[in-house]
Amino acid sequence: MIVTAIAMIAAAIPPVPEWNCDDPQVQQEMNWCANQEYLEADAALNAQWKKTAAVMKLRDENFESTSDDRPGYFDTLLAAQRAWLTYRDTHCRSEGYYARGGSLEPLLVATCKTELTEGRTAQLAALVEI
Rank of each mutant, 00 (worst) to 15 (best):
T66F: 11
E37I: 10
L58T: 11
I9M: 12
L108S: 10
Q27K: 01
L108W: 15
T117D: 08
C21S: 15
T52F: 07
A99S: 15
V16L: 13
A5L: 13
A34Q: 04
P106K: 08
R100L: 06
D22C: 12
Y87S: 06
L45M: 08
T76L: 07
E37F: 07
L116N: 00
G102R: 12
E40F: 02
V26E: 06
R93H: 10
A79W: 07
T4G: 09
D42F: 03
R93Y: 13
Q36C: 13
E129D: 03
A11I: 00
N46V: 00
T86G: 14
A41Q: 04
T52W: 07
I2E: 14
A12D: 14
M1V: 02
V128H: 00
I6S: 11
L124E: 14
A10R: 04
H91G: 00
Q123A: 12
Q36R: 15
A44H: 01
A53Q: 11
T66H: 12
G101T: 15
L116M: 09
A99K: 07
D75Q: 02
N31K: 03
V55A: 09
A125F: 02
F74D: 00
E118L: 15
A122Q: 15
T90M: 04
E118Y: 08
A47Q: 12
T117R: 02
D22E: 13
D42N: 11
S103N: 12
L108G: 11
G96F: 07
E115V: 06
L39R: 13
A10E: 14
L107S: 05
V26H: 05
H91Q: 11
R120Y: 06
Q36H: 11
